[in-house]
Nucleic acid binder design. Sequence first.
DNA 1: CCTACCGATCGGTAGG
DNA 2: CCTACCGATCGGTAGG
Lengths: 217, 217
Amino acid sequence: MSQDARKKGEPREAGETRRQILQAAQHLFAAHGYRAVTTRQIAEACGITQPALYKHFGDKQDLYVSMLLGEVAQVKTALERIVQREAPIPERLRLTALYLLNNTRHDIGMMTHDMSTELSQDRQHILEHAFVDGLVQPIAALFEEGMRQGLMRLPGQDSVSPQMAALLFLNIIDLFTAQSFQDMAAEPRRSKTEQARLIVQLSLYGMAQRQERLDPL
Amino acid sequence: MSQDARKKGEPREAGETRRQILQAAQHLFAAHGYRAVTTRQIAEACGITQPALYKHFGDKQDLYVSMLLGEVAQVKTALERIVQREAPIPERLRLTALYLLNNTRHDIGMMTHDMSTELSQDRQHILEHAFVDGLVQPIAALFEEGMRQGLMRLPGQDSVSPQMAALLFLNIIDLFTAQSFQDMAAEPRRSKTEQARLIVQLSLYGMAQRQERLDPL
DNA sequence: CCTACCGATCGGTAGG
DNA sequence: CCTACCGATCGGTAGG
């Protein structure tokens, strides 16, 4: 699996192995979840032995948390750049959805499940904070701006907080990302661009006919 | 853990143990996922030893699948009863959401993840079919009726198939059910009744202000 | 339905 | 970074 030609047992460039481990961990954990991936699988994917992992990370949880923190930091940077653009809110939402459709490898449901069942309390809180700070907040800022402009309903009986709106938005993106759902839904193949547009439509206007008003509940 | 007073090693009433195992499995799997729950934990929760499980189920997968099939069958019955009522579509959607908020213990994300990573292909297909047949189809029928009545947008560039609409609806319910999300969202405590109403509002009308039309995308 | 037990595999450590 | 290895625990079986 390893692509470099160093002799076995010989350390490679400092930091290089660590980077490689994080990348292998990212792929494997994203595909199978925390519990189902073994430290031996990760090591093998990097061309090292399993005990060598512990030269770079304290334990399996540490590796998992480090990997996710790196991912979230990357996404945070990208989202903040999109949010600060000068463009109408729906357009910025569309760009956000498009970025996440193209770059999100972890489904959020699996991530939060692993967080809450496999990690120690301290590590849970670290990840939860990073997740809120890096993913939820930038999007929530967009919804808050929309509410201030009067484009969206204010939180209350008929709508939700900007943070919950962001979670809802992320959740819909997740649904489009998950392959298993697409298969069940008899949906036509759509490009990412079309998907992003549709996600914004559904988030803002729901599924009702535009000219009709259904019975208010 | 066992509540009956039979002597150890003595079989209890036929079918009773099986029912007890399924219930314990349901609680444990719902809380922790397939991989994290051991056959010994399930056995202990029923007051039997681990090898005794294999008198009732072929293996761990068989137990998991049997449990989920039972759950889905129960939900299917309830949803079909709601769908066949004589009431406006939004009202039937609200009752559907309310039922699922009160009775769904498995988050769908976890379930589909376990299905696709821990089960054999045959068993995957069995569960997927039951899930579509028992959960998705009844709700999709409701959305299809709404589309035929012209209350909802037809599938196409601006909307989705009835099946996808049902998945979207289920996904939003899931978001409200998941405790971990509620904590992040700075949301006020809402009763299940209010949550069900809000879920329908968001599904049908989205988050945009009613009187405004944002820039079409 | 129990006791006893198996091979496999897990995360992690010792020592170099 | 490797070899060698540990205790714990897993799903599942044998035999009664």
